[in-house]
Write a protein that binds this DNA or RNA. Structure first.
Lengths: 329, 329
DNA sequence: ATGAAAGCGCTAACAA
DNA sequence: TTGTTAGCGCTTTCAT
């Protein structure tokens, strides 16, 4: 069926060892010009392809990396984590084995088992939104890196978005265009995003010499409806700019403002968070926002798994959230 | 390091052959109750995990399926193709090797080579939007299935969305709620989507005994701006309902209608296409639309690759596009 | 019912 | 410079 190294060796009139050497371009392996050429010719003549699996078996170490995701693949939004991991793995000659578990523990264990059976070098365990997790037992004895999530006791290396910096720069952008009364439409649901973004908001204000005004800090459902519902309060607060917990909230604010005949950014400057493409870029006017670095999270995950990144100061490596300026402020 | 079958055999006081038999539950392999129990105990005691790679090597056939995508991973929208393929592959004990090539031919060849070296059972070649493609040469001699695309001469099995049926049912829904003058905001760019959706629109009209009126068939850029720009003509045409080439166009129509103080669905019923989640579900009112069956496309792709689906009548297998009714009609 | 042994395709000492 | 050979972990006849 498939042509093996032996076939090539025979065709080139050399031994498999020789073929192996030229195929892998082994340093410190002196191959005669002539033999090398014959081997190369035989390789193309026979259409030889090395069997990566046999190679792995023989070498003892595989080129696989596993990525188990709770619902990343289902969430267009966070799919970039996979993409980033994939690219980075590829870049280093690794192949990514992905499994989507939908948060189902059984599926999760199956996935991990399968990956281990494929001799993965390590496993990336990731979630579609930034949060604290319980690391599944089978991962305890495996090289693993958490992506977009972290262990409560930081007992595992983790790569997460720098929510605080995100909140800070979002606020800074509003400040930069002259706003002084800046509202924050935070989410009601407890999460790192909620706490750290608020911290960032406050720190930016403080840095600008503006006292934090509780009357400007709102909490609403983190969706369009929440944003829409918050508009009355927002208007009553006298804010001239608002930093929304996410783009969907911003979308709701757009709706509410429009209904009242108010214009963005003239009557109200709006800053989002997440950079959910379909929303942010297509709102009218296009929404300025802070991007969640999903792609980079995935990429950084494989780098730390491979030991390529300088070990983070703490267990949690923070990836910064770049701001994306459009026309809403 | 890792415990192998030999270790288990030794611990259980049997031969590796026996262990292999109990591990794989080989039919027609009579193992003594006692031996079987000892093996099983040894397996958990030692935490043994079969080495899938060695197994593949020995069996000769792998459990890998390759998926090369042009920009699927980058397009949240179409990412479900990967997800569907993944799930289905998994369901049959296969693992998916994904590569995103960004349409770069070199990357594509590398990806294919890598997959072949991993002894994939076959390759799924897919695109993020439905179109005709040139099948890359290295795929010519490989078991391959095209997903969301097709070869000009249909020389490869392909799985694609049934655009015509989609266009037809979209129109039928408008018909069903009583509209007679139904406009179609088609795209200007040539594609299967443009041609077949139009065909579907016409066939639904015909079936309802309504003559096709060219004055109701528009062509615009397939995005929000295009939809927005088409509103004047749309209104002038006297249409009471409109079928938009995609959700983004519908979004533009929403904007245009709203600016003129018109209401959906009272003044104009709107039907989209694509079911781009973030748009369709969150527009106000939520948009009724037709979904592109990305997940199913991926799943069907692996099924036909594995020879599990009854071979399609033609080379192209059509996957139907389900309608998603919300509140815009 | 169980075991011995020959591979699967490749790598890596070690010889020659 | 090149070849021999012994594995890598597992499956699978073929014996026993």
């Amino acid at each position: 069926m498939t042509t093996t190294m032996r076939d090539v060796a025979k065709a080139a009139g050399v031994s498999v060892a020789t073929v192996s050497h030229v195929v892998n371009d082994k340093p410190g392996a002196r191959i005669g010009e002539d033999a090398r050429r014959r081997v190369q010719e035989a390789i193309i003549a026979l259409g030889y392809r090395p069997n990566a699996l046999a190679k792995t078996l023989s070498e003892g170490s595989s080129r696989f990396i596993g990525l188990v995701a709770d619902a990343i693949a289902t969430t267009p939004f966070a799919g970039q984590i996979i993409h980033g991991a994939q690219d980075e793995a590829w870049r280093h000659g690794f192949v990514l084995l992905v499994a989507n578990t939908e948060g189902n523990a059984a599926a999760e264990n199956d996935a991990i088992a399968m990956m281990l059976e494929h001799q993965v070098r390590g496993i990336l365990y990731s979630t579609w939104y930034h949060r604290e997790i319980e690391v599944p037992p089978p991962l305890q004895h495996t090289e693993t890196v958490l992506v977009n999530c972290f262990a409560g006791d930081d007992s595992f290396p983790a790569v997460v978005p720098d929510e605080e910096q995100g909140g800070r720069t979002a606020t800074e952008e509003l400040l930069a265009v002259g706003h002084r009364r800046i509202a924050f439409l935070n989410t009601t649901t407890s999460s790192p995003a909620r706490d750290r973004r608020l911290a960032g908001y406050r720190s930016a204000l403080e840095e600008a010499g503006i006292a934090f005004d509780p009357a400007l800090a709102f909490e609403t459902a983190p969706d369009q409806e929440g944003g829409y519902a918050a508009v009355d309060g927002l208007l009553a607060s006298g804010a001239t700019g608002v930093f929304c917990h996410n783009d969907r909230v911003a979308m709701g604010v757009y709706d509410g403002l429009r209904e009242r005949g108010l214009r963005i950014p003239d009557d109200m400057a709006v800053m989002g968070f997440d950079n959910q493409d379909v929303i942010a870029a297509h709102l009218r006017p296009p929404l300025s926002t802070v991007a969640l670095p999903h792609y980079e999270l995935g990429a950084a995950g494989v780098r730390t798994l491979l030991g390529l990144d300088a070990p983070a100061a703490g267990a949690r490596q923070l990836v910064s959230c770049p701001t994306v300026l459009r026309e809403s402020l």
